[in-house]
Design a protein around this nucleic acid. Structure first.
Lengths: 175, 175, 175, 175
DNA sequence: CATGAATGAGCCTTCATTCAT
DNA sequence: AATGAATGAAGGCTCATTCAT
């Protein structure tokens, strides 16, 4: 049996992903998790705290960190990030939740900060590791890479497989 | 003096962009527009109707339609779309509002439908017009193009100008 | 027809006086005032604001101020304060409400401050005006005066009239 | 080591005295007493039961009973009551708690009853024992005595000592 | 005895919406 | 058209109370 706290987070992510952070009643989250409404507030001080937990899990920061730490080769790095990214967001819950998180960055400074860090630090690191430099062209390419992944996730074309898509994308970026 | 209805929509877009569609009280929108709360409901049947109007304006559909209608040359087409896109979303209100709109697509079927149309029909048309074909590589490139624009808008790199960025991007896509 | 805001305050005072400030639901206050619950929050930002208004009205500060301003003679001053005091708190609502207010002074600094002012400034002024001096005996007498009024209000002896009581009290204080 | 039950009552009195009976969460009381929340309900059937225990201890009934039983002389009786009273309520916890108790008399019939008994029976007994009679003047004096003690307790004048105050008060009452 | 997770009732507050003026 | 008072439905949160361990 999964731990209660984890069940609540899962339920929250599911409900948040379809209703949005602010239209999702805690009562619905509780029902989804199979617990009482009061218990949610035993594990989380407030709904905001639960939002923060869900928001943190919705971003691909973990993927970036891991791949950058473990992989050296440039093509392999792109593949590592690409594969995990597309896998993570093949789950509709995660996909929609990430969009919800992007939308609330103007409300929660912590979310904004996390996004800023992800966009600046990690893309810079990737540009360095892949192209050996950090010039305009490299950074445009990295952004195109992530942008493409995002676009694919948001609305996967029904007639292109993940592998095919990723192969093509990596080729374009590295050429 | 701007028309009242228009003032209300503008106010709504501004408030929606920072507070999100559901945390933005109609009272705040009215204050922003300089009218009474009651008047908002004279021009719009409900808050949802106002949300739909704002959501429609937040997407780049108008840009796609216009450029596809007026421009033939492939590079010119990419530049037409790119320039207008980056201009539209250089406004923080528009930028944030588009994110809000992406987030509510699971709630409003109309929004979902509009997005679906934009992603499938227009990207297909662009692929056709630019690459003459609609194969995997072409579509990956179009997605990379839009993804890159989106990424740039979300967090413009402080040391790269719009023109420079767009030039590089078009070169990468067309090579 | 009484003004709505005033009706709400009256209803609040009545409900507060029997249920206490914190056990009195706003819904009950609204019902007592004959308005909807939401309207209470149109006139008062929060329940706390309503509590403050009720608390301010529950104290005898107005009586002290008026009598000290208008009356010179010492016996007359005691009688002015005594009469109005006993009249004000002959109303069970006012009597109980004052007790509620005394009880929440540790929670609301504004209430504590108002009480402090009442106890120090006004008793000092009365001692000066009645006994011409501010020594220990005078101040003990003033406190006995107020204490006696308070005790009478809290539980009026069934077989002593207000006038009789006040006459006796003034005699004792002035002898 | 103090008995657990006693620790809980002490903790309750402390928390009640500052937060009031109804704003004081049982959890806070438990923390103050250094026990778990559940244990409070092992020793007391409900929070109300705990309130009653605290309320009973907050009143000066014990003082009245003891002094009336042991002391015969009138001045000595006043001094006995006065001294113990001022000592008991020199403790801010007791002082505030008594006010809280006065405030909840409209809610708990038992509290109301206890107060009624204290006010009628004991003041009557004191009047008899001190003045030999029970006429209006005597009872006004007794009320002035208690009222003065109450006033002193509520807000002790910073420049008058307990002894000095009590001496003066007894003189005034007995003259 | 003792703990703390779990429950559910109730309350304050917000806010979309209506309506008399 | 325009205002703002008035309403009622939720929703977030607290907290007394229970119960398995």
């Amino acid at each position: 049996m999964e731990k209660v706290r984890e069940r609540i987070v899962r339920g929250a992510m599911k409900v948040f992903s379809t209703h949005g952070y602010f239209k999702a009643p805690v009562s619905k989250i509780a029902r989804e998790a199979g617990v009482s409404k009061g218990l949610v507030f035993w594990y989380f001080r407030s709904k905001d705290e639960l939002i923060h937990e869900a928001a943190a899990r919705s971003l691909p920061i973990d993927i970036l960190r891991e791949c950058l730490e473990t992989v050296q080769d440039k093509e392999e790095l792109l593949r590592c990030v690409g594969e995990r990214y597309l896998k993570k967001y093949s789950d509709p819950v995660m996909r929609n939740l990430m969009l919800q998180t992007l939308a609330v960055r103007t409300i929660y400074p912590e979310v904004e900060e996390r996004l800023r860090e992800m966009c600046s630090m990690y893309t810079r690191k990737m540009a360095k590791q892949i192209f050996g430099k950090d010039d305009v062209e490299s950074r445009v390419k990295i952004r195109s890479f992530f942008g493409s992944l995002l676009c694919y996730s948001l609305r996967p074309p029904p007639d292109i497989s993940v592998e095919e898509y990723l192969d093509n994308l990596i080729t374009i970026i590295l050429q």
